[in-house]
Design a protein around this nucleic acid. Sequence first.
DNA 1: AGGAGGCCATGACCTGGGTCAAGGGGGAGG
DNA 2: CCTCCCCCTTGACCCAGGTCATGGCCTCCT
Lengths: 236, 236
Amino acid sequence: MAASDHVPTLPDPVRALELLSHSPVFGGASPADLRPLAARGTFRTLRRGELLFRAGDVPETLFMVSSGSVRVYRVVRGGTRELTLHVEGPRQLVAGVGVFAGSDPAPAHAVALQTPTEVLCLPAAAVREHVFGTPALAAAVIASLARRQAELLARLEGLVFSELGERLAAYLLEHAADGPHALPTNSDLAALLGTVPELVSRKLGEFYRLGLIQLERRQVRVLDRPELERLAGRGG
Amino acid sequence: MAASDHVPTLPDPVRALELLSHSPVFGGASPADLRPLAARGTFRTLRRGELLFRAGDVPETLFMVSSGSVRVYRVVRGGTRELTLHVEGPRQLVAGVGVFAGSDPAPAHAVALQTPTEVLCLPAAAVREHVFGTPALAAAVIASLARRQAELLARLEGLVFSELGERLAAYLLEHAADGPHALPTNSDLAALLGTVPELVSRKLGEFYRLGLIQLERRQVRVLDRPELERLAGRGG
DNA sequence: AGGAGGCCATGACCTGGGTCAAGGGGGAGG
DNA sequence: CCTCCCCCTTGACCCAGGTCATGGCCTCCT
């Protein structure tokens, strides 16, 4: 943390331009296109658990993660459950849909997962005006939103039609495929997989007993990748 | 039907402009903005069951329903189940996401629900170029996609976290709130509600026995609206 | 060192939803 | 008019997932 703060003296617009021009969404645009946008950006640092925005807020800001990660989630079942929609790391947009949908209130909460998490904040009005007025940017943004939507659709479809074992296997393959991986808490995993902590615990135990994974102090390692892939439903 | 066919001699571009300028997505744009787009449009008529496109197709065309309706759905569980994503009526876009996402293959199938169903076909390349080059259009399209995404999210979230009874009650309230409504087949309803025909039959029977709805030859009428609203989970 | 709170693990039990199978009715076509 | 076929209906059974409750471990704070 102290290390990454060695260059805090660079002005925000410079860092913002650097960040934007290396992001997947805006990376294709020319620096000339991005500079006016970057000039409007400010940075904000959050601690784990700190909320970036809440469902119902009018989206006045577009965020891009600079470091750390942000979890976007909805609260359902009358507050008894959380469903994580996605987790965004560096160079990824948060609140894209809300900002571009017009004045609709945000449909989800967003919270920092790590300390520190730094985000670039861009005023929604400026973003809209600039993006819509620059065809290359508009195309990139729409493509990005569309891709996000497709991912979300696939995930929720999985929640509806596949079993917990499949989803957990898929998660493990995605996050622990190469080398060990520090598991989130069962509660966070449950929010991601659309279930409750007890069942995460059970299934992890089952996978362990079957010799599919190694589990030690929340560090997980894949032992039997082919079997996990079979469980994940490559053809089920 | 015959009545609406009394003016088939109007040239396509004129009808296309008429349709586009009265649509929610493009309605806000000026006729001058829309005319070049309309000039590229052609109409196509489908019979019930006819496919507009298939999942996996590269989206070369943006469709706007002119009359009839189109069901967009995914096939899941290795072909054993269908999940209806949405049903679009006149003046609504179909395949919006696919067209604007770039070259990604379509994630869903689309099929006509009625005979006849007429759609306006707009070449994807022309649409992209024109929309991205016209800020007002770009804004409208992005807002539309974003809204669609929010709806889809809410629906799928409902599939995951609410019970069949709630979903069916919500469906009845939405479609049969005022006056009688011709029910789709149980199979179609099941695809919409994310379940199987047997359970639709059971739940409908249950609602009937409880005196919540009237059912006669597939015509349904809401009898006890307050109770249905309670079941639909306004606060559950 | 001790206490407290959070997280994990595990057992017992319940229920909604899905599957399978059998029976019935209505419409289309011969 | 009869027959076939499709779809709806209904019953019996099964199971994944969810809930509730208990007990243990680890960690952090005092």
